[in-house]
């Protein structure tokens, strides 16, 4: 079954095509990798899928529903969650408050519910425990280390119960021990049925973790397949080496 499909997605900034007719299909229940040289349009592609920017042309379909030009919160409600390249948390809110921001659907009763709504706090603690940062729940997010903030960001995204999770450079700026931890977390979450799309520069991580790798160059996919096949594809080498 198809999780997400884009058809001819395009976006240009001031005449420069950042994403150029990208047609991509993600299979449900897989860990998909998205790689490509700097400036190949990976982050713009993320922003297009999640509605942060609007495409000039093309469509985005999630589980066969057209979500093109939906506002980001509606896309989140549809079941797509994302992290950001440079990890973004709410710095002057506590860890627990960060966790309780996520909204799964807009319901008045839920919104007026206390911040310390028991069920929600339990769910938040569950995710913090899985990230190993439950002891920090009363700390302000800005006081956390970068690695802890990355885990918090992921935990907060999971609070919205997304079925498709987009990770933008999860290994960027974190130490090797934590990378291993993140890889095993992603594997576990995938085993529980979540689909992933991971943008990453750390090739070991991508090749070791992903079931399916898509290679972007100049705003569109140039190759895809299992990691081993992609690694040996001459077009990929060419894109990276710029021959």
């Amino acid at each position: 079954m198809t999780s997400l499909r884009t058809e001819g997605l395009s976006k240009s900034f001031g005449g420069v095509l950042a994403v150029d007719g990208a047609t991509v299909e993600l299979r449900e229940g897989k860990i998909n990798g998205l790689i490509g040289p700097n400036g190949s349009g990976k982050t713009t592609f993320f922003n297009l899928i999640t509605g942060m920017i609007r495409p000039d042309a093309g469509r985005v379909l999630y589980r066969d529903r057209d979500i093109t030009r939906h506002s980001p919160h509606r896309i989140a409600h549809a079941g797509i969650g994302r992290t950001f390249q440079l990890c973004r948390v709410f710095p002057r809110m506590t860890v627990l408050e960060n966790m309780l921001v996520a909204v799964r659907r807009t319901r008045l009763r839920e919104l007026l519910a206390g911040l310390r709504d028991k069920g929600e706090v339990e769910r938040a603690r569950h995710w913090l425990r899985r990230m190993g940062i439950e002891h920090l729940e009363d700390a302000e997010a800005r006081d956390l280390s970068y690695g802890q903030q990355k885990l918090l960001e992921l935990a907060a995204v999971l609070m919205a119960e997304p079925e498709l999770v987009l990770l933008d450079e999860p290994a960027g700026g974190v130490n090797p021990a934590l990378i291993d931890r993140i890889v095993s977390l992603v594997r576990d979450l995938n085993a529980e049925g979540r689909t992933f799309l991971v943008v990453e520069h750390n090739m070991d991580m991508v090749m070791g973790m992903c079931d399916h790798v898509i290679v972007f160059d100049r705003g569109a996919p140039i190759a895809e397949g299992p990691p081993s096949a992609v690694r040996d594809d001459p077009k990929v080498l060419e894109a990276y080496l710029g021959v």
Partner: peptide, 27 residues
């Protein structure tokens, strides 16, 4: 003390991020 309040504070801190977590920031 409400979830609504947490959403509002999230808007103050980082509006795009709040929106991506499903907060209907406009409303």
């Amino acid at each position: 003390r409400s979830r609504f309040g947490a959403g509002l504070r999230a808007i103050r801190e980082d509006e795009d991020k709040a929106e991506s977590l499903g907060v209907p920031t406009g409303a």
